[in-house]
Design a protein around this nucleic acid. Structure first.
Lengths: 153, 153
DNA sequence: TCACATTTAATTGTTCGCAATTGAATATGC
DNA sequence: GCATATTCAATTGCGAACAATTAAATGTGA
């Protein structure tokens, strides 16, 4: 009996890889964000760091890393660039000298207002309802968390 | 009347960003793939290139780029590393001297057999049924394609 | 107290990812 | 045929991303 082609039949085909779907979607997001973030003078990872800090600043590098799943090898130079752009200040904690606390400058706080235009542009570009996007986001986050759970083992 | 918090209420919250869900899921995949691909001597982007070539080789760099949404600035050095690893051969086309054709070596072809173990490990790590993953993949690809459509405008 | 482990950032080296430019080959219009 | 435009890969420069190591500060146990 002839069988239809399915993902399970051809596990090495590029178009059957969910990882590639995610990988290429991440790049697509990056390209959509680029012109929007250029106006703010931010790269996409820098924007993520700013999102974290706009929720709460004066936090150690480690906290930002846990939130974004990034380590100091990525964050240290990135934060130095944000400091060079006068958006954050890096100060070593007096309670625990190992920690470097990241605080927003006035400019860093102010940039939040300019950033408010970004999410609506992305929503428009995704050409999708908010509820659909929320549902997808929740599914993807659940998958990510299952993958991250495996890594710790 | 008090309202519930929703994504629409707080468009700049990190946890409301679908882009971050995708971005962090891509990194999670990368980390799960790492130990599997180390055994093949490949990085994740190199693995994607090999997936393309295992479907059809002797193709110009441009074709690989269109398939993976990558440009020559990324692919040229990556392909040189694959060549240094004796997995591909790079030869300038005789019909069109501008093109560089990428062909698999015997080793490159042979590696496909070792790679067959990879997808099943990923499936296990994702802790999810094939049909669920296929449905998610299709949704993410559709979103990616809508985003990519906006970029061309 | 003192040796030892742990925590935290920073550093180094390798690999992506992309914008911008270059240079060669090919296609097009007149 | 010839000037011009387009295509394609390569290059350069910058910003991530991460593994591995280093160094300093802190915590822990004998």
């Amino acid at each position: 009996m002839p069988r239809k082609h399915s993902a399970a039949d051809q596990p090495l085909r590029l178009d059957n890889q969910i990882c590639f779907a995610v990988y290429s979607a991440a790049h697509a997001f990056n390209r959509v964000y680029k012109p929007l973030l250029d106006r703010l003078g931010l790269t996409y990872p820098q924007y993520l760091v700013m999102l974290v800090l706009w929720e709460r600043d004066d936090v150690p590098v480690k906290d930002i890393g846990e939130r974004l799943f990034l380590d100091s090898g990525t964050l240290t130079p990135l934060l130095k660039r944000l400091e060079a752009a006068h958006l954050v200040k890096r100060t070593r904690s007096s309670e625990d000298e190992r920690q470097v606390l990241i605080a927003l400058t006035a400019q860093g706080h102010a940039l939040k207002e300019k950033a408010r235009a970004v999410p609506q542009s992305i929503l428009a570009a995704s050409d999708c309802s908010v509820s659909e996007l929320v549902a997808m986001k929740d599914e993807i986050v659940a998958l990510r968390d299952r993958l991250n759970a495996v890594i710790g083992e």
